[in-house]
Amino acid sequence: MPRPQYPTSEGLWSRGKRGEAGYGAVRLGTPYPEAVESFRKAVEGRLDFDPAVLFVWGTMQATAVLNVLKAVEETFGEAGQELVRKAINQAGYEAMKGFLESSSFPDDLSEIELASYVVTGINTVLYASLERPWIESENRCAFDILWCPHQDRYTAFDCRVQRFFVEGMFHAIDDSGMGRITAWVEKLIPRGAECCHFVVERTGESDGKNPWHAYSEELMRRAIQKLSKPKHPSDG
């Protein structure tokens, strides 16, 4: 499969505009507003600031999160794994709650429009990624990620740690009264695809575990199982 090609004019970043008429009145905010404003003031007008250093710093943090997960899995097994999961859930919940509180969406949006636009916020604000989104039906939307901060450092299996952040984000969406959504992954850049492709679906008020969470737990089981097998260079 072809790898992503850059530079590209496709997709949108956080200040980009989607083609749907309803998106014109959407305003995407940020969590941690005081810290964000402090940062903006610190770099305002500074020609000696290179945005890439934030990527370097963020990648170091993302590597640390992954290393912590792997270390507790190896040392404490399932109990340690669940401990890290809950801590990351909390971080995702806090970020999503702050994003929703600082954003505004028109009242006349359909439920799938609202879900899709909120997901654009997750992708372009919380994940600082380049997104190509679209709506497929009244209950389903989808998106491609054309660039992700983790794509050149994580293996496909490493991406599992990010699922824990999204679990927390989905909980925050549930608690906001916006309705329940789930998602699944069909392509990943670290697996050799030209983009990461996700499908998002409204699940209404259905009972039971969110399928996103259920698959996270399947990957958690695989991670524990991998620890009992000899490690080969090709393992993710």
Results as ranks from 00 to 15, higher is better:
residue 86 K to R: 15
residue 77 G to T: 09
residue 230 P to N: 01
residue 132 R to K: 13
residue 166 V to Y: 03
residue 92 G to E: 02
residue 3 R to Q: 13
residue 166 V to I: 14
residue 91 A to D: 06
residue 62 A to F: 01
residue 60 M to Y: 06
residue 23 Y to G: 14
residue 106 P to M: 07
residue 191 R to S: 15
residue 37 E to D: 15
residue 193 A to K: 07
residue 106 P to T: 07
residue 37 E to P: 00
residue 48 D to E: 11
residue 151 Q to Y: 05
residue 63 T to F: 03
residue 151 Q to N: 02
residue 164 F to P: 00
residue 114 L to N: 13
residue 12 L to M: 12
residue 105 F to V: 04
residue 61 Q to T: 05
residue 35 A to R: 13
residue 46 R to H: 03
residue 27 R to F: 10
residue 28 L to C: 11
residue 209 K to R: 12
residue 167 E to Q: 12
residue 163 R to L: 09
residue 99 F to Y: 15
residue 174 D to R: 10
residue 35 A to M: 14
residue 23 Y to R: 07
residue 210 N to M: 05
residue 177 G to K: 04
residue 133 P to M: 02
residue 21 A to G: 08
residue 32 Y to M: 08
residue 197 H to L: 03
residue 124 T to F: 12
residue 161 V to Q: 00
residue 198 F to P: 02
residue 188 L to K: 02
residue 187 K to W: 00
residue 179 G to Q: 06
residue 210 N to D: 08
residue 96 M to G: 02
residue 216 S to G: 08
residue 66 L to T: 03
residue 146 L to T: 00
residue 109 L to P: 13
residue 4 P to M: 05
residue 52 A to Q: 14
residue 38 S to W: 05
residue 70 K to Y: 10
residue 139 N to I: 14
residue 103 S to C: 11
residue 198 F to W: 10
residue 71 A to L: 15
residue 201 E to R: 13
residue 7 P to N: 09
residue 59 T to D: 04
residue 132 R to V: 00
residue 158 D to I: 05
residue 17 K to N: 06
residue 180 R to N: 14
residue 187 K to R: 12
residue 30 T to L: 09
residue 88 I to V: 14
residue 36 V to P: 01
residue 130 L to S: 07
residue 181 I to D: 04
residue 167 E to I: 09
residue 102 S to G: 06
residue 174 D to K: 05
residue 104 S to H: 15
residue 46 R to M: 04
residue 110 S to P: 09
residue 193 A to L: 03
residue 119 V to W: 13
residue 63 T to E: 09
residue 23 Y to M: 06
residue 185 V to H: 04
residue 22 G to A: 09
residue 116 S to V: 10
residue 229 K to S: 03
residue 175 D to R: 14
residue 125 V to H: 11
residue 184 W to Q: 08
residue 109 L to N: 10
residue 80 G to P: 12
residue 17 K to S: 13
residue 176 S to Q: 11
residue 183 A to K: 06
residue 31 P to S: 08
residue 146 L to Q: 10
residue 136 E to P: 00
residue 223 A to M: 01
residue 226 K to V: 01
residue 39 F to A: 12
residue 44 E to G: 08
